[in-house]
C-alpha cells in the first residue's frame, strides 16, 4: 500500500512545482488539478488499507469541490483574458503596489 502513497506524493510534488514554474494561468490550473488528483489517490489507497469506505467518500467530495472550483476558476481566467488579452499570471499585477 505504501507505493500508492509514494506515487501520490510524487504526483503532488510535480503539481506543486508546476504551479510555481508555469506562467500560463490555464496550465497552472491544470497543475492544481494534478495535486487534487494525487490527494484522491492517497484517500482511496487508505480506504483500502483501513477497510472502510470513508476514504472513498472523501475522494468523492474532493472531486465535487474540484468541479466547482474549475467552473469558477475558468470563468475568472476568461474574464481576465477578455479584459487584458492575455492568460499569463504575470500580467495580472495591478494590485501589486
Amino acid at each position: 500500500m505504501t507505493e500508492y502513497v509514494i506515487l501520490s506524493a510524487i504526483l503532488f510534488t510535480i503539481g506543486a512545482v508546476g504551479v510555481l514554474v508555469r506562467r500560463n494561468a490555464l496550465v497552472v490550473f491544470m497543475c492544481v488539478e494534478l495535486m487534487l488528483n494525487a490527494c484522491n489517490l492517497a484517500f482511496v489507497a487508505f480506504a483500502r488499507q483501513h477497510g472502510n469506505l470513508d476514504g472513498q467518500v472523501a475522494a468523492f467530495f474532493v472531486m465535487v469541490v474540484a468541479a466547482a472550483e474549475v467552473v469558477v476558476g475558468l470563468a475568472i481566467i476568461m474574464t481576465i483574458f477578455r479584459a487584458r488579452r492575455s492568460a499569463s499570471v504575470d500580467d495580472a499585477s495591478l494590485l501589486r503596489y
Partner: peptide
C-alpha cells in the same frame, strides 16, 4: 523546493511500515 518536498515526503512515507491492507 520541489525536490526537497518530494524527497521529504518519499523518505518519510518509505520509513512507515503498514500492516497488510484490510481490503474492502
Amino acid at each position: 523546493g520541489g525536490l526537497v518536498l518530494g524527497s521529504l515526503l518519499v523518505i518519510a512515507i518509505g520509513q512507515v511500515t503498514l500492516a497488510s491492507p484490510v481490503g474492502l
